[in-house]
Structure formats: C-alpha cells, structure tokens
Design a protein around this nucleic acid. Structure first.
Lengths: 136, 136
DNA sequence: GTAGATGCAAAGTATTTGCGACAAG
DNA sequence: CTTGTCGCAAATACTTTGCATCTAC
C-alpha cells in the first residue's frame, strides 16, 4: 500500500498545516513530474488562497526532508517527484517531453566503480537520457 | 595540435568580431568550466568595454554552433566548456567543486541499450557523478 | 553598403525573503 | 502561549531583449 506524503510528514516530524496537507495530497496523487507552476495550479483548484511562495517553501522543505526529489532536466524548469524506495533514472522524449523512468543495475554499479577509480565515494548522481521515438 | 575556437568559427562560418575573438581566446585557454560571470571577468581583463550581454549572446551562439557545450550541474550556474572530439562525463567533488572528466565506454553502450529497450534513439545524455574524496 | 553585432538599460523568469498577521501543537 | 508558517510584495539571481549605433565582410 502506498504511503501518503501526509503520513511521511508525520513520521518525519514535519508540521502539517492546511496548505502543506493540500500540497502533499496533490503530489501524492500526481503520476507525473510537475514543476512549481503546475503544482501551484493544481493546489489552487483546491484552495485558491494558497500563495506560490508557500508552494516554493513547501517543495523545498519536503525536498530537504527527503519526501520529494527535484529534477532539473535540460532546458526546463525544476520539476518535483515523490521520493520513494525505488531509485530510478529518466529517459526524456525530446519531442513530446514524455518522461520514462528506468532502472539499470549494471549502470549503477559502473558509476560507483568509476567514482572509486578516482578515489571518490559516490554520494549522488544524475543520469538522464534524451531520445526520440524510433519508427517501428 | 589543438584547434583554436577562433579557427572553428571560421570553419563554421561564424562571423568574427573583436569581442568574439576575445571570448574565443579566453575559452580556448580555459582548462576549467567557467560560468558566464567568470568568463565575463576574464574577458574584461582583456577588454573592459565588452558587455555581459555580449558574453551571454556569444556563449549561446557558440553552443548552437557546436563550439561550446553548456553544463548545468546541481545547485550551480550554467558553466561552459569547449566541445571537442572526445566526449566525456563529469565527476564533481561536492566539497571542493573540483570537476574530473571521465569516459566509460561500457556505460555509454548501456545507455544506448536502455534507450533502445524503450524504443528510443539516444540523442543526448547527461551523466554526472557527485562524490566526496575518500581518505586513503 | 548592409545584414548582423554591440552596449546599455529595461524586461523577463524563476525563486527567495522580510515582515506583520495568523495558526499548529 | 509561543514558535513556526502564511500571504504579500519586494528583492534577488540569472538571462534575454529592444533599440540606436556601429562594424565585419
């Protein structure tokens, strides 16, 4: 069963205000990777009085609390996605903007190996593939 | 022998103004990945009258002409690097900001394979490793 | 000579912040 | 109660652009 962001806030001791509950709900229900503007539009439908400053403050707070993760894909605004157990990278369709999530254990291993080769411990990484759909 | 950016401009039919020659020279001589501000500082030492708007316009032009490449590493400003034959990715020291360039053919191949698995032709990619130096 | 480049300042984006009012625990 | 949050508008950081002038080819 999916753990709601609201529950994660409680678990992590993040104070729950009405605004945060709405933002949490909207992000929990989002299957895509909305940017702040899009998220603001969605929460505004539920409560038109929420300010965009609160949305910015909240996504930042959620990110720092390990609830959301921020992506900055090429040539776009920052987008947010719920952070859950399963790590994945992204394949972006440069024509349509569609985003496909993928996992490749072998690439993960090789990344760690590269970092180690240079005497580093891998703390974070970013792997994005940009492609166009092949005609089949 | 290293091909200067100025020569690349001639080859690609990019008009060479005094300002562009200076920016080309500074980038050709840069071993690092300067952001626009840093580049502006460097060119200002040669010609203090160059405006930052010209620097912005020029890096964009050079990027579109395939002479420079732009990086937007996590939590920083856009940085530029000369684009040359050898593709490479980056390992960034999150403590010092040091950037190490690396190549891993196996990762490259796997990326292409992942894209193909989803029916895409890989057009571009971004791979960045963020790490901390290990005590040896 | 002319299309395109430049410098300047103003405008545009995305995001952050100071502050007084307000609400969660 | 009291600490932290909110809404608002102003501020910031980075980048782009309109316009009159200038310059490479």
């Amino acid at each position: 069963m999916k753990v709601l962001i609201e529950q994660k806030c409680i678990d992590k001791g993040v104070k729950l205000t009405d605004q945060r509950k709405i933002i949490a709900k909207v992000m929990s229900e989002s299957e895509d990777h909305p940017d702040v503007d899009e998220l603001y539009k969605r929460v505004s439908k539920i409560d038109a009085k929420i300010s965009i400053a609160t949305v910015y403050r909240t996504v930042k707070l959620f990110e720092e609390s390990g609830i959301l993760t921020k992506h900055e894909f090429k040539g776009g605004k920052a987008r947010y996605e719920e952070l859950n157990e399963s790590h994945h990278d992204h394949l972006i369709d440069i024509k349509t903007g569609e985003i496909i999530e993928f996992v490749d254990d072998e690439i993960e291993k090789l990344q760690k190996k590269v970092a180690e080769k240079y005497g580093y411990e891998l703390v974070d990484h970013r792997l994005e593939l940009y492609g166009v759909k092949k005609k089949s």
